[in-house]
Amino acid sequence: MAKIIGGFLVPHDPIMFVSPDAPEKSVADKAWAAFETCAQSLAEMEANTVIIVGNDHYMLFGTTCLPKYCIGTGHVEGPIDRLPGLNKGPVNNNEELANFIATDGAESGFDWAVARSFTTDHAFSIPYQLIVKRAEVISGRQIKAIPVYLGSAVDPFISMKRSRELGEQIADAVSRFDSDEKVAVIGSGGISHWVGVKESGQVNPEFDQRIIELCCKRDLDQLVALSDEEILEQGGNGAMELRNFVCAMAAVEASNVSLIEYQPVPEWVTGLGFMELKAS
């Protein structure tokens, strides 16, 4: 059977690409190096497939349909929002496993919205290109990638509780998938950040450190207990993406979570946290 072997929690900050020289070089270097550390580690894990849990930024899903959770089960490309150094291209999806997760969910109370042909945005494509594609180069092996999109940036938001349950369903489905696939899961999101609002450019290192501590303690109960009001006040509207972290952590069931890097970067409008999830 397939097995989840680990994962990562990483940011998907597009401003790193738009204004790479905005922060001090030492700060920027640490952030780029953290992605490289993740890629090296992913290559060493010998994963065949990576599930990347991200979220739309009101570019892909419009007002006609806002899914709480969606999985790309067929053709995948992206990102729709091309950035300097982040070109649009095809994604090597694991269609068989993605469809299995969706159909397994339908039998266990998780009615996935399905994208049969999907264009990602930067939430998927930044970790895909900086970690997954880079790990392919390092390892010399092909690694497939499945996009999972949660309603983390546009209300009505998926709840933290449901994000956790969804991660658990992904884990269950993978464990029943008849293959020798080794699967990693990436939770893609910033910690504190305010997007498009008056407070944009603020970061809250205290909130970020609290989240990192809860992640490293693997305290999903406390993470899930965070109210939306608290997240919005302390971490900003962008921190609602913590749902992506929760889903990934629940999927990996890590025996160890370690901090790779943390940088609060106002110039990139985000508290950037990088963590590795090691499965038992």
Binding site: I15, V18, S19, H122, K198, S200, G201, V269
Partner: peptide, 17 residues
């Protein structure tokens, strides 16, 4: 844009610089 919101921040999350 920031000014219209009442912010003096020099930073933004705009992906178009």
């Amino acid at each position: 844009y920031n000014n219209k919101l009442g912010s003096t921040s020099g930073y933004s999350a705009s992906i178009k610089g």
